[in-house]
Design a protein around this nucleic acid. Sequence first.
DNA 1: TTGTATGCGTTATCAA
DNA 2: TTGATAACGCATACAA
Lengths: 350, 350
Amino acid sequence: MIDPARKPTMTDVAREAGVSQKTVSRVFNGEPNVRPHIHERVLHTAEELGYRRNSLAASLTSPTRGRTIGVLIEDLADPFWAAMISGVEEQTQARNYSLLIASSAEDPGREQQNLDMFLSRQVDGIIVVPSSSDHAYLRADIARGTAVIFVDRPATNIDVDTISIDHFAGARAAAQHLLAHGHTKIGYVGHTDQVFTGTQRRRGFESALEEANIRLPKKYLVTNVTDALSSESATLDLLKTPDPPTALFADNNRAAAGVVRALNKRDASHIAMVGFDDFEFAEMLGITVISHDGRSLGRSAAARLLDRLDGQSHEIAHLTLPTTLIARGSGERPPERTDGLLSAGVADPR
Amino acid sequence: MIDPARKPTMTDVAREAGVSQKTVSRVFNGEPNVRPHIHERVLHTAEELGYRRNSLAASLTSPTRGRTIGVLIEDLADPFWAAMISGVEEQTQARNYSLLIASSAEDPGREQQNLDMFLSRQVDGIIVVPSSSDHAYLRADIARGTAVIFVDRPATNIDVDTISIDHFAGARAAAQHLLAHGHTKIGYVGHTDQVFTGTQRRRGFESALEEANIRLPKKYLVTNVTDALSSESATLDLLKTPDPPTALFADNNRAAAGVVRALNKRDASHIAMVGFDDFEFAEMLGITVISHDGRSLGRSAAARLLDRLDGQSHEIAHLTLPTTLIARGSGERPPERTDGLLSAGVADPR
DNA sequence: TTGTATGCGTTATCAA
DNA sequence: TTGATAACGCATACAA
């Protein structure tokens, strides 16, 4: 009899079934050369004993990979990253990989710590949304076969696959959309320059304006917005100034939420706006947005990583996913003259 | 010289450093009895070789646990579950556990398949939002020390820890709130009865009405709503009937989104509503909701699980987390007479 | 303070 | 078709 608190092993099953341990191994690996009645007997005693294969021990013997992917993002609660993980999982589940996840909270220390953890757990590949600024410590691991793909931000000091949505083109499209609707006074509410994606978006925005030969007053560029609250107050401040913009571009969804609230509070629904990032209620609120799909980002990242693990690719790739502008009304309002002849406070009744 | 594509092992480090493998092991485990200069030499050559500890191999030698928790939910992209995972991760990261995640897509087959995967990877504990209806297959593993906690729905055929928000009390509070504001004709829009949480919520709702001696016409109970779209059309249908409700309770956030859209379309903003589940724009839209925090649910679930693993608890517990009603306007509108003397279509101007 | 021998649960090799 | 034996990378027990 076996200790009931101990997990049964192949050896236990072998003993009970009266075969060698290797035969049990063959059965559980679907290897040939086991006679049907032995095969069945093994499965039966395994079932009886409540045997489970220890895949950690299995992956210790080298050629078999552990089939595990590690995913590191900044914030698991963020719906966009949650969607990305969901896309990753769709792929890994389909291709029989397990998923290890961790969050960095944008702390470089925690980032490295978690990646170290992944590596010590022998992951086959890593998907990372980086926050640190030096990834040289991954070089040796990559050389030894660990696949790595960076999402949304470039890697520094190493040359690896990268995938990102097209922040530049998306923001550019937003600005062009507002320009096409006659706006020339367009305010920008968003990220600080510290954030890579924020910079990309701001540059895209600016490139469209430059192309149209429009130079904006400095005050139209509000770039220290970190949450909906600061966005709201910054927007309110901007609207109070003498020559306010007739349109606003919010470079992320927290900023957009603040802008929408500010416009609401001031009954300033004549002011056009476009947001970056779609969100659940944007449709109902009639907010025009630059939409991009976290799920397909995750799907693509995982697909690329797993293809590399399958040896299907060897060159480094830098992939970009397109964005879509979804017009819902808020971005299509024409500029209203603000020269004082018209009452500036009149809200669009619908 | 070592094969550059092979991961260096403790033995490699030992050879290079001119010590025994055991000494290297001591260094990496912080064990005493290593002379400082040896300690340093080992660390140095390890660094030089790019050595990483293989924690899978380490956890093979029994007494040390693998320090891994598996989390299975239905949909990783759902913001509520994402928040829960985030709460779990907060705990596991703090207590030095890794996180394996998978989704079941509410498919019982995938549920068991993923839990089997967790167990074969020797997880110490499992947090599961179940969708299947028989969990007897976990019994042996629980008996052998794997900790398990079920979230939001009870386990069947096994006796394990359970944690859930108080669906019954939350829905009851919503109904009581509407009753307190004078409503007697309250419609219910939500889940099918197949879903445990849906049933709990409906019962809570009904208990409040029964207590107030109110019997609702059957048509007020709309329970086959699975997404925002079906909720919207069901709500529109309900409002078209001769004697429509003056208030609505949406038992989940997809249902709430549909209800809000329907009220918007019909300019029926005089109709009161309360939703279950808070969401990002509920505040801006002035929607009164029963709020509950996914993050703290995850935190509590993980804390309970890890405490059990630490041997701090042995009895089975069934925990319940409270909900909060957040009044934002939509739930505080008084009932409007619908006897035909007043124009039913008049919308509240604000 | 350090090292040797052995075992963890599995797979690989090679012989029977 | 089967089975003995030796790895895998590390930790435990015990000896030196």
